[in-house]
Design a protein around this nucleic acid. Structure first.
Lengths: 210, 210
DNA sequence: ACCTGAACACCGTTCAAGT
DNA sequence: ACCTGAACACCGTTCAAGT
């Protein structure tokens, strides 16, 4: 089986999923592929280009319902949920989507299709930008926060506080924290999406669904 | 001048601000402090603990208006703007706040004061969690996105697309992108905050400001 | 207690060499 | 064209040694 960009990017995403972004080195990736690390440089100019390919693989998984399948607002809402699903499926790789510039053809194609939905809603370019940043910022930020809740970050200080008496000095934290535990995160995300899409629906003149 | 945790953390933040997170190594940091890199380990157990201290320094700069100075909703709105200011002041260090777990005493103290505002608004613990994640997710995600707009990410692929013909094939991207340029980001953030706080104001029974 | 300096096990990347 | 292997300039961290 020859080495290809696709095989390498797939192995890189799998390695990040299992061992974390900080452990996805060219040498370890080469090891997974049963090839010398330096062979990868024949397919990618540098590690940044490889990480862009990993982003593309994740973006590929995020479906946007096709035009006409359902009203624009529902297409956008479904896309938002699918974006979050990628964050849950790849908690250790999602940071790439949240922190790296989108610079690939694949990413721009997706941008284009998403921004088309805003136009279908009747928003002009400026308002499309506003709502895009609002909904996208929330989805990205909430996805990162959920990832942090779902697992340890490798080089973070081990949980000094979460079970020591200090936490007891913070009554509001103690009261709210249970509602941000993993088993409640679906509800928390639903709430945020609900507020944002009710506001967007009011703006574009549809009646809110709920 | 003796080496202290404070001096080290301050130098680390300054180094990240100037050279980027990826160039803030123990050796380079030691160089800045005119000390052997290994001396830092006498003050911090490992790099993760140092990065937590850097986070604390940033959080220290983010002011929350004191109780009673202004209505709770305005205190929260001001805090949201101050949080974003930290993202703009430290675009290369802000990723720490967005991606690392908050695990320090300092971070929990701040959580406590912020969640107290939600309680002052009359929200119960569950709704506090919902609004906290909604507003916090947006602020964090938008801050990261703005940081990416404001500067190059070191190992990202150089801007292949931003000036090549490919972009021309994406009419919606072409139309919307100018509204997400740096000079318009204040407006974009204002819009998001406006939508969120109007919704929150409606929920807690105050009249929206605008 | 506080800092040094050598050492270990890693990195990303370059480059000459193999086939 | 595609891959190897040695080498370079870095990492974080450990540890024995200095003061």
């Amino acid at each position: 089986m020859p080495l290809t960009r696709e095989r390498i990017a797939e192995a890189a995403l799998a390695l990040i999923d299992s061992d974390g972004l900080e452990n996805c080195s060219m040498r370890r990736l080469g090891n997974q592929l049963e090839v010398e690390a330096m062979a990868i440089y024949h397919h990618f100019a540098d590690k940044g280009e490889l990480l862009d390919a990993v982003m593309d693989r994740m973006l590929d998984e995020i479906e946007l319902p096709p035009r006409g399948s359902t009203p624009p607002l529902e297409r956008l809402r479904q896309f938002t949920y699918n974006y979050r699903s990628a964050a849950i499926r790849h908690p250790r790789a999602f940071i790439l989507l949240a922190t790296r510039r989108f610079n690939t053809v694949c990413a721009f194609d997706l941008y284009e299709r998403v921004l088309e939905v805003f136009a279908d809603l009747g928003l002009d370019a400026a308002e499309s930008a506003y709502w895009f940043r609002l909904i996208g910022g929330f989805t990205s930020g909430a996805g990162l926060a959920e990832g942090a809740s779902r697992e340890r970050i490798a080089d973070a200080t081990p949980l000094r506080l979460e079970r020591t008496p200090e936490a007891i000095d913070h009554p509001h934290v103690r009261a709210v924290a249970p509602h941000l535990q993993v088993r409640n995160l679906d509800r928390v995300f639903d709430f945020g999406v609900g507020v944002l899409f009710d506001a967007l629906a009011a703006r574009v003149g549809d009646a809110p669904k709920s």
